Each structure stands twice: as structure tokens, then as C-alpha cells.
Simulated assay, not measured.
Amino acid sequence: MNPSHQHTHAHPSPHDHGPGHAEADQAEILDLDAEVLAEHIASITASLPRRTDPHHIVDLGSGTGTGTFALLDRFPTAHVTAVDVSGDHLERLRTTATVRGVQERVRTVQADLDEGTWPDLGSPDLIWASASMHHMTHPARAVRAAADALAPGGLFAVVELAGHPRFLPEDAPEDHPGLEERVHGAVDRVQQELMPHRGADWGPLLGAAGLTLDLERTVDIDIDGSGDELIGRYALGVLQRLRDAVADQLSVEDLAALDDLLDTGSPRSILRRADLRVRTERTVWAGRRADG
């Protein structure tokens, strides 16, 4: 299991050059995700129903550090323990921490959170799990482990996405309208089998673990990407990973149209479109442990 922020479980494709290449591509998308959605992530961290600012935070399924650095920015006296199964992602996180001058405030732990026994994470005031809980094979067990690790009065925040972001207008591309929705439909069918807890309501699971639900909030995201090179690269990376996941599920015509969008040398490349938008939503649930 890889509880990182980008959810595609890609199958091999002619565009891959081995596992290391795929993981590097994923890491780049995670970094782009952090940059494109920084304002919305900051809004979520600001909405957490904290009583006091946390001193020790655990970021479960940290990836390359999207949540870690947002939380360090929000809570300038806090330290974060970043937990992920990927050593490469954690190495990238540590490098970024050094560049940002916050390396003394970050500890990394490589661990598979689907294991029955978790590493010792101390007694954090806040546990943050963004786009990682739906990867769990046994989510109720993982929520219970997180609840048990919290300090009395501590908060467990679960943030989940409503699928992958959309970028194209419904009538795009012009000679193959609706292509993106068909790609997402194929991805949803594949991932429903791989990750049956994707799209779950985490409120009842927090309650079953003995936590009191203090917040449930959905954030709608719609960012104008017209002429934005960053969003073009983000769209290219996300759609490439979706293509890798479902190439064998698409019609010949849809696959050819998608490959044309992904061909950076094509005049119809997604990088040359002036009508991109980032459309998605995130829901946050925050459960509090009793004071003792």
C-alpha cells in the first residue's frame, strides 16, 4: 500500500520506464498539487477546530510533504512527524524541509500504515491524514490506531478528495467531446475494486473509534488555469497517470485522442490549451479524543 496523495495505481505502459520513474512522476505531481492547491489547503488547516495550537503533529501518508509544510506554516511552533511508506517521497520531503529551513521541525518515519502494529508516533495533539485513509485495507483499524495515539483532547483530521481533478471543458477536445469524463469513468471503475473505501463517509468511523466529530466541511475547488503554465503541467501529469491506469479500458479512439492531448509536441497538446480549469472538491472530518 502506498498512502500518498495521488491515488492512481498505474499499470505498466509504454510511457513508463520502471518503478523508479513512476514514483518520480508521482512525486512531481504531489509537489504540483501542493503548489496549485496551496490556498485551499491553507483554508482547510485554518478551519480545524483547535482549542490551542498543536505542538506535535503527525502527518499520516505524508507523500512529499503537502500537508506537512502547510501545517508547519499554519502552526509556527509545531513539530511534524511525517509518515509514509515511500522512502523516496520522504527523502524528497527532507530535502524540501532543508531548503525551507525547517528541517529541525520535521521527523520522518517510513512505515506501512496497513501493518497491524504502528511505529511509536508519540502522543500528538493533531493527526492529519490527507488522501491517505482510503488506501487502507482495514480503515476501521487504522482510525482506531490513530485515535489511540492522540493525546487527550487531541484532534484527528481526515481529508479526502472527490476523485481526481478535472481540467477540460465538457465539450473538449473539439473532435472528441466528453473524453475526460470517459477517462474518469474508467478510472473510477478500476479504483472501486482496488480501493473500496474511496468516497467513504469517515464521520461514523471516527465516532466508532471513540472520537467526537467536531467538524465536517466540504471545500469546492474551481481554479481558472487560463494561460497558467503550472496548471498545464499539473493537468499533463494527472492525465498521464490516469492514462497509465486505464489505457486498456479505453476505446481505440479515446486512447488516441488522449495521447494527442498528452503529446507535448502536438498542436493540440493540453499544454497549449487556454481553457483549463482545476475542478475538484475536498471534504474534511475532524474528530476529537476525550480529555481523559
Rank of each mutant, 00 (worst) to 15 (best):
V85P: 04
G65W: 02
R144E: 12
D224M: 09
R182Q: 08
H135Y: 02
F75C: 07
D259I: 06
T108F: 02
R289C: 02
M133E: 01
V246K: 04
R50S: 12
H40C: 03
H164V: 08
R272K: 15
E35T: 15
T280L: 09
I57Y: 01
F156K: 07
D224E: 11
E281T: 10
R288K: 05
L194C: 05
R141M: 06
G67F: 03
H89Q: 11
I223T: 10
R182V: 04
R189V: 14
L113Q: 04
T77A: 14
G210K: 00
P14Y: 06
L121M: 03
I57F: 03
A149F: 06
I29Y: 12
R141P: 03
E229K: 14
G232Q: 13
P49C: 04
N2D: 11
G185P: 02
G122C: 06
R268C: 05
D120F: 05
R282D: 01
G227W: 13
D88C: 06
D114H: 10
G116R: 15
R241T: 08
L179N: 03
D275L: 10
V158D: 02
V183T: 03
Q240S: 15
L179K: 05
L258F: 08
H17V: 13
S266M: 09
P173T: 00
I270C: 03
G292E: 12
D148G: 10
A151W: 05
E170I: 10
G225H: 03
L126A: 05
A257M: 11
P267W: 06
G185D: 13
D33P: 06
L121N: 04
S123R: 15
F156M: 12
I57H: 03
G163E: 08
Q103M: 01
I127L: 09
G20L: 14
L211Y: 08
G227L: 13
I29V: 15
A129W: 01
S123I: 07
W285E: 03
P152T: 00
H15R: 15
R273D: 00
A256N: 06
R50N: 13
V246S: 02
D33I: 11
L150V: 13
A286N: 05
L60H: 00
D201H: 09
E23Y: 07
L262C: 11
